[in-house]
C-alpha cells in the first residue's frame, strides 16, 4: 500500500525546518555513516587493547615464532641461522625424542584410563550413597590444593626406598627388602602416574559426580519401572548422559597430561635411564641445558600440532555423537 507522504500530512502541520534537515546528500550520508561505524571500532578497541596486546605478545607471536625457529638453529644464545627442514628431519630420528614421546603417550594413556575409571566408579558410589557426600567431596578434592611439585615432594615420603612409608610397611609386616620405586623402570613411571592420580582424582570425581547428578530424575524412574538394575541401568541411562561430558573431559585431560613436567622434574628428573622423561622435560632440557634450540623448537611445534590434532579428533567425535543422538 502507499507509503506516500500524504499519510503523514493528514491534518498535521509539517515543520519546515525539520524537513530541511532531512536533505542530506547521499555522499554526506555515507560519510557520516562510516564515521559513525568507525566510532564503534575505536570504542571497542579501548576494551580489547589490554588483552589483545598481551595475547599478541605472549601467545600469538610466540606460536608463530616457535614455528619459525623450528626451521632455524640457534636464536637463543647463539646467532640464528636457517637450516630448513634439518630440525624436523632430526626430530624423526632422534632416539631420545622417540623415547620421550613413547613415555609421554604411555603415561597419558595409563593415567587417563586409571583416573577416569576410578573417578567414575567413586562418583557413582558417592551418588548412590548420599550420606557424607560433602565430606568425600572435600577430602578427595584436597590434594588438588598442592601444586604438582609439592605433590611430588610429598610422595617422596611415600615411595622413597629407605624411608618411604610403603616400604616401611612392607618391611615391617612381611620383612621384604622393599622396592626402589623411583630408581627402577618401569616402577618409576608408575610412581609418577600415582602422584598424578593422587592430585587429579578428586577433580575428576567431582566432575563426573556433577555429570551423574545432572541425569534427569524421570529417566532413572523410568529405568526403575523397566526393571533395569545396577550396572545395566548405569550403562543404559548414565553412560549416554556422561558421554559428551566424557569426551570433553578427555580433551582437557589430554592437553593437561601431555604437558607433564613438574612431578617428573622433582621425582626422577627423567631417570632412570630416560625411563620417565617426557616431551616437555625434553624441550626444557634441550632449550635451557643443552642449548640445542632447533630440536627444542621443532619438538614444541610437534607438541602443539599433536595436541591440536587430538583435540580436534575429540571434538569431531563429540560432534558426531551429538548428531547421532538428535
Amino acid at each position: 500500500m502507499s507509503k506516500s507522504p500524504d499519510y503523514f500530512n493528514s491534518g498535521v502541520p509539517t515543520g519546515q525546518e525539520a524537513w530541511a534537515k532531512l536533505e542530506l546528500s547521499s555522499q554526506e550520508y555515507r560519510k557520516n555513516a562510516s564515521r559513525y561505524r568507525l566510532r564503534y571500532l575505536t570504542r571497542a578497541s579501548g576494551f580489547l587493547a589490554p588483552y589483545m596486546i598481551l595475547w599478541l605478545a605472549f601467545l600469538a607471536i610466540p606460536v608463530g615464532w616457535a614455528i619459525f625457529l623450528s626451521f632455524n638453529d640457534g636464536g637463543v644464545l647463539d646467532p640464528r641461522y636457517w637450516v630448513g627442514f634439518d630440525n624436523w628431519a632430526r626430530t624423526f630420528d632422534d632416539s631420545e625424542l622417540t623415547q620421550v614421546v613413547i613415555n609421554t603417550s604411555l603415561f597419558v594413556v595409563l593415567a587417563i584410563t586409571i583416573v577416569f575409571g576410578l573417578a567414575i566408579f567413586l562418583a557413582s558410589l558417592i551418588n548412590n550413597h548420599r550420606r557424607g557426600e560433602n565430606f568425600f567431596k572435600v577430602t578427595l578434592y584436597f590434594p588438588l590444593l598442592a601444586p604438582p611439585i609439592l605433590g611430588a615432594m610429598i610422595w617422596h615420603f611415600m615411595l622413597h626406598f629407605d624411608f618411604g612409608i610403603v616400604n616401611l610397611i612392607t618391611r615391617g609386616l612381611f620383612g621384604w627388602e622393599g622396592v626402589n620405586f623411583l630408581g627402577k623402570n618401569p616402577t618409576a613411571l608408575f610412581a609418577i602416574i600415582a602422584v598424578e592420580i593422587w592430585r587429579g582424582l578428586g577433580f575428576w570425581v567431582l566432575f563426573y559426580l556433577a555429570g551423574l547428578q545432572s541425569v534427569p530424575g524421570e529417566l532413572l524412574e523410568a529405568a526403575k519401572l523397566d526393571g533395569a538394575r545396577g550396572l545395566r541401568r548405569f550403562i543404559r541411562i548414565s553412560v549416554p548422559v556422561l558421554r559428551p561430558l566424557f569426551l570433553f573431559a578427555l580433551v582437557i585431560a589430554i592437553i593437561m597430561n601431555f604437558q607433564l613436567f613438574d612431578s617428573v622434574k622433582i621425582l626422577t628428573d627423567g631417570g632412570p635411564r630416560m625411563g620417565t622423561a617426557t616431551i616437555v622435560w625434553f624441550i626444557y632440557r634441550r632449550m635451557f641445558a643443552f642449548q640445542d634450540t632447533g630440536l627444542a623448537f621443532s619438538a614444541s611445534v610437534g607438541l602443539l600440532i599433536g595436541t591440536m590434532l587430538l583435540t580436534l579428533l575429540c571434538f569431531w567425535l563429540l560432534g558426531r555423537g551429538r548428531k547421532r543422538e538428535s
Binding site: G15, E17, A18, K21, L22, L24, Y29, N32, A33, R35, Y36, R37, R39
Partner: peptide, 19 residues
C-alpha cells in the same frame, strides 16, 4: 539499531549518527 538507509530526525536534529 542502525538504519540501513533513511533518516531519523528528533527535534530539529538528524540523529542517525548520534549515539
Amino acid at each position: 539499531e542502525d538504519a540501513t538507509s533513511g533518516e531519523i530526525v528528533i527535534g530539529d536534529e538528524l540523529v542517525n549518527f548520534i549515539d
